[in-house]
């Protein structure tokens, strides 16, 4: 059996996926990224290779790096932007999905997908990390909650307290002020989710997304955010059967499979 790999070195998590020649996902892993992208890629690849009994990345037919550390993946045959890889990952998971909101550790992207899984259009935030995974980490820290606890907090809110600042530093100050004023924590959390959802709305619209949208990236697991996005977009977000955080690595592996098979 021939195997094909995709390694998505993100700013917060590194993900790796191995596909067989029929496109079946035979192994995957998600690890916390290290300060050194190459070390992150090595650790993730070692983990995923061991699951299929391979010794080294050299044993793969084709390997593609993606994510912010995409050019640091050892033995990668090439690298492809995470925008293209997320589109392909979602396409092979559910071809009916036509748009993605990808919320990673340091950026937010809106991507619309063509019928063959390639990118039709995309929009991405500039260098500011407002409304990204880093933002949620800072907010959860302000609440003294874990991320999973924080993501569920807003679901119980009866009202939404608007948060005006999206800058991580200013929002943290605003949240601390609101908590100090004795405002309900769940309603503040709902305000935070809504602020980010509105930013996602802009990215999705800029990318030309109209219907059949899904969420990818680590923040896709945030239930409160998902609900807020559904509220602002006025439609139901499609749930993927595969971990949405793996979509970049899966797309990279699928590209590796297509290119590896075409090479012969």
């Amino acid at each position: 059996m021939k195997y094909f790999g995709g390694c998505d070195v993100g700013s917060t998590y590194t993900k790796a996926v191995i596909l067989d020649e029929n496109g079946n996902m035979v192994a995957d892993t998600t690890i916390k990224s290290k300060i050194n992208s190459e070390q992150s890629a090595i650790a993730a690849m070692d983990d995923v290779l061991a699951k299929v009994g391979l010794k080294s990345s050299k044993d793969l037919e084709y390997l593609i790096g993606t994510g912010y550390g995409r050019n640091k993946v050892p033995f990668a045959d090439e690298n492809i932007s995470e925008i293209s890889c997320h589109a392909m990952g979602v396409h092979v998971t559910n071809p009916n999905v036509k748009a993605i909101i990808d919320i990673g550790g340091q950026d937010v992207k809106g991507i619309s997908i063509d019928t063959d899984g390639t990118v039709k259009n995309f929009a991405m935030n500039d260098k500011c990390a407002a409304g990204t995974g880093r933002f949620f980490e800072a907010m959860a820290r302000s609440f003294e909650l874990s991320l999973p606890e924080f993501s569920k907090l807003s679901l119980t809110a009866k009202n939404v307290i608007p948060i005006t600042a999206q800058c991580t530093v200013f929002a943290e100050s605003e949240v601390i002020t609101l908590v100090g004023e004795g405002k309900p924590m769940d309603e503040i959390a709902a305000g935070i989710e809504m602020a980010v959802a509105k930013r996602c709305f802009v990215m999705a619209k800029k990318a030309g997304a109209t219907d059949s949208i899904t969420l990818t990236g680590g923040c896709a697991k945030n239930d409160g955010l998902k609900e807020a996005i559904e509220h602002v977009l006025k439609l139901k977000v499609v749930n993927l059967k595969t971990d949405p955080q793996l979509m970049g690595a899966l797309g990279a592996a699928e590209y590796a499979r297509q290119k590896g098979l075409a090479k012969k």
Binding site: I80, I83, S84, D107, V119, F122, M124
Partner: peptide, 16 residues
């Protein structure tokens, strides 16, 4: 200074 994000956008543009 935000060369990482710009690189992603330009690379995705080239790919498209």
């Amino acid at each position: 200074s935000a060369s990482g994000q710009l690189r992603t956008r330009f690379q995705a543009f080239v790919e498209s």
